[in-house]
Simulated scan of single mutants.
Amino acid sequence: MSPTLQLAQALIARPSVTPSDADCLDLIAQRLQALGFINERMDSGPESFRVSNLWSKRPSGHTNAAQGAIKTVVFAGHTDVVPTGPLAQWGSDPFVPTLRDGKLYGRGASDMKTSIAAFVVAVEEFLAHTPAPLLDIAFLLTSDEEGPSVDGTKVVVERLAARGERLDYCIVGEPTSVKRTGDMIKNGRRGTLSGKLTVRGIQGHIAYPHLARNPIHQAVPALTELAAMRWDEGNAFFPPTSWQMSNIHGGTGASNIIPGEVTIDFNFRFCTESTAESLKQRVHAVLDRHELEYELQWTLGGQPFLTPPGELVQAVQEAIAQETGLGTELSTTGGTSDGRFIATLCPQVIELGPPNASIHKIDEHIALADIEPLKNIYRRTLELLEAQARAGAAA
């Protein structure tokens, strides 16, 4: 059994349903400390929802005055997992890692405990061969990615920024692949902006509409206009910004009462061609033009980020090609990730992990054939970035 598989099993066996860490970070910190990493716990949040955070860094010990500071490579991820769902529907206990039909089953097998195990073993192998690299290597791990994402990576990044920590490259272990590990990586993500719109009318008897004002009737023309709007055209990396309603609720439940208000929940997934402020302004302009009496509460879940092809993307693509022969696809599709927080401090952030077909599902799993290639891709990426650093130092 490979060291990567062993560590993945040990992590899956810990029932770290968000925000619990179930001592995953302690296990990882022990492995990293043995490699010369300096571990810092940055736990955050109230005691009733305490989030575990680990920042662990191994300084290279080198300086390079001619080329500037030694570059830092960060491996980022989360130890928390989503709830299991009905246990009776699982083929095996979700927190008893099980090998069956060429797959490793368990909650977190794909999202993303195997990636974390692959991170650790890749670094162990890299340092065994290159004990004095020209790179600083760090880990940023949290137990609050599947939850509110308030006291996890966001807090760690804010603390690192406050003390002037420099990050150059970051690989997030999200499950990005489709059929085979390495066939797709994320080099950016769309932003997310949510709104809760309450349109007020005047409640009354449905038989006397002239004595009431129906907020649903008033809201529909504005909502129709918003649903038909073209917000932007996207770009080479992002699809056009989308606006979707997720919920409409109003009324008392009685069929003979005109409601006094209606509430609409909606969300933007926006690309770098739009900003949160520009989208807000356009929505308010439509609502005002329709002369609605309304209240609108906004929640910015994350800004879009993009890492254009450059040092990190090229290293990861080359590592994937060396290990698997695949030409990887760059993508910005899907939901949000903690990469949105890291990108505020780190100029080059990509996401790379195993196939995602079973994530959050009953019988979550990863094919055994995907585990070692994932670890090797991470190690090869370090080797390629190290070669870049040495070439720069020699120039």
Rank of each mutant, 00 (worst) to 15 (best):
S2G: 09
Q9R: 15
P15M: 07
T18D: 10
C24T: 08
L32Y: 04
Q33S: 12
E40N: 06
D43W: 13
E47K: 12
R50N: 03
N53I: 05
S56F: 03
H62Y: 12
T63R: 10
N64R: 04
A66M: 01
A69P: 08
V73M: 15
A76F: 00
A76D: 06
H78T: 02
T79M: 04
D80A: 00
D80E: 01
V82K: 07
P83G: 11
G85P: 07
W90P: 07
P97H: 15
T98I: 06
K103V: 12
Y105A: 13
R107T: 04
D111N: 13
D111I: 06
K113W: 12
V120W: 01
V123L: 10
A128G: 12
H129G: 03
L134Q: 15
D144K: 05
V150Y: 03
V155Q: 02
E165K: 05
L167T: 09
E174V: 11
T181C: 15
N187K: 00
L193I: 08
K196P: 00
R200F: 09
G201E: 04
I202M: 02
Y208T: 09
H210I: 09
R213E: 15
P215N: 06
P221H: 13
L223Y: 14
T224Y: 10
E225L: 02
F238T: 03
P240V: 00
W243H: 04
Q244R: 04
Q244S: 06
M245H: 09
M245T: 11
S255N: 07
T263N: 02
I264K: 01
F270T: 05
S278I: 02
G302E: 13
P308K: 11
L312Q: 10
Q314A: 09
Q314N: 11
E318V: 03
T336S: 13
A343K: 04
T344D: 12
T344E: 15
P355K: 09
S358A: 10
I359L: 09
I366K: 05
I366A: 06
